[in-house]
Design a protein around this nucleic acid. Structure first.
Lengths: 158, 158
DNA sequence: ATGATCTCCGATCAATATGGTCGCACTAAG
DNA sequence: CTTAGTGCGACCATATTGATCGGAGATCAT
């Protein structure tokens, strides 16, 4: 449950790769093309291409056309959060349908819905989590310091 | 993205309802049947029935057969966490495929996979979040105190 | 006992989302 | 002006999900 899509997976891998090339010691500043990433991680080329296009359109990476072309991070790895990447590919974070209801459609349960508020709170928390971890953090194996603080979760009155 | 299924939604609503009847002031201890819940929240009867069966099989609620039968929480609302409910319906929490890899299948990217570790950490955090909020909390509108502590998320050296 | 009411269980179907593919236009470097 | 690359849109196959149907077994009231 709560699985993220393969496309999002690919996006993360690709960005991680681009970042590590760009800021690595070997060939800093080098442009990375789709094929290189696809081969390195065994990702279907065309699918990856599409993912990168979306990332480019959403301003996370810059594309350079023509031969010797490729992609480049649009800003520093520290300024790209996991939430931005995932939302760029999969759309806004919505743990439940009714969180971003458009005018036309509303859920039949809405009238007596008793779970909307708590679910929205969970959603917020998850968003914070994803938005506090950056691509830069991920390159170092993930922020080890993010912890959940739940002062009195289990059965304390308030 | 990261949406939970309708079934899980229904499960949450149903449990919330059962809990509020069972521990409410009006008819405490009363048994609740499927039809009542389905009508109250406009949920397809058969689908809800199936959801409740699963919850029952997983030990979250008790079923009572025959006329005047229905469902009852198997334990206190405080001892039922959101994580338990969701996992009961949707299977184990797995933000990414490779988190619970079975022997047979493994991802093609595994060899050079650079995002596994950080993703698993995110997954853990989400699990903590869901496992720290109980049905009891949800009945009071959701734990307002769960917060993410990220000491130096945005661009600080460490 | 017998019928009504309810849970239990499995098979099935339709809709949607997803992963993956194809073809072509456009751009830039040699 | 050819070649290697991105940009983009349409497209298909399959998996997942939401929803439906049919019947078997249990239990209570009469």
């Amino acid at each position: 449950m709560l699985k993220i899509s393969k496309k999002a997976d690919y996006a993360l891998m690709a960005l991680q790769h681009i970042a590590s090339v760009q800021f690595g010691d070997v060939t800093p500043g080098r442009v990375v093309n789709t094929k290189e990433i696809a081969e390195e991680y065994n990702i279907p080329l065309e699918l990856l291409a599409k993912v990168l296009q979306v990332l480019s359109k959403n301003g996370l990476i810059e594309s350079h056309n023509g031969p010797k072309g490729g992609y480049l991070l649009a800003r520093s790895a520290r300024q790209i959060t996991i939430a931005q990447i995932l939302e760029s590919i999969e759309g806004p974070l919505a743990i439940t349908d009714c969180s971003h209801e458009k005018d036309g459609d509303y859920c039949l349960q809405r009238e007596h819905c008793n779970i909307r508020t708590p679910l929205l709170k969970i959603q917020d928390s998850i968003y914070q989590l994803l938005n506090n971890m950056t691509l830069g953090d991920m390159m170092m194996g993930g922020t080890p310091l993010i912890t959940i603080q739940s002062p009195s979760a289990q059965g304390v009155e308030r």
